[in-house]
Design a protein around this nucleic acid. Structure first.
Length: 114
DNA sequence: AAGGTGACTAACA
DNA sequence: ATGTTAGCCACCT
C-alpha cells in the first residue's frame, strides 16, 4: 500500500464533526515532515470520492485548498453541515482546533499532540 | 535516473 | 504580529 492509500485510510477514520491537520496525518503515517505530500494526496483525489477530504485542514486550523473541483467555500459548507463552526476571516475560513481537532487514541500516535 | 512540484510547516526578518 | 524563506518527501516527467 502506497503513501496516498495510507493517507486516505486515515482520513476515512476521521469522525463526523472532527478534523485533522496535514502534518498530523503525515506524522501518523511516517514522518511529520511529509505534510506537503498529504496535501498532494488530497489534491490527487477524484472529484467523487469516499474520502472525507474536507475534514483535513492545515495546522493553523484554516482551510487552504487550491483545487479546481472544489473551493474553500464548498469545504466550509461541508464542515458546517456536520455541525462544525467555521468562521470567516477576511479571505479565509477558520476553525477552532482546540474544539474540533481529532486525536486518535486507539493507535500508536500517542505522543501528545494535544 | 534526476529534477521539479506542491490542499504544508516552522523558523526568520 | 504579518510576510517571506527554506526544508520536506512521495509522485510525475
Amino acid at each position: 500500500m502506497n503513501f496516498y492509500e495510507r493517507v486516505y485510510q486515515i482520513a476515512r477514520q476521521i469522525p463526523r464533526g472532527k478534523v485533522m491537520t496535514y502534518g498530523q496525518i503525515a506524522a501518523l503515517i511516517s514522518t511529520p515532515r511529509a505534510a506537503r505530500v498529504v496535501g498532494f494526496a488530497m489534491r490527487a483525489l477524484p472529484e467523487k470520492s469516499d474520502v472525507p477530504w474536507p475534514r483535513v485542514i492545515n495546522s493553523q486550523g484554516r482551510i487552504s485548498i487550491v483545487n479546481w473541483h472544489w473551493t474553500p467555500k464548498d469545504q466550509a459548507r461541508f464542515l458546517r453541515a456536520e455541525g462544525i463552526k467555521v468562521q470567516k476571516r477576511n479571505d479565509g475560513f477558520w476553525i477552532d482546533l482546540d474544539k474540533y481537532l481529532w486525536v486518535p487514541k486507539n493507535r500508536a500516535d500517542r505522543a501528545g499532540i494535544v
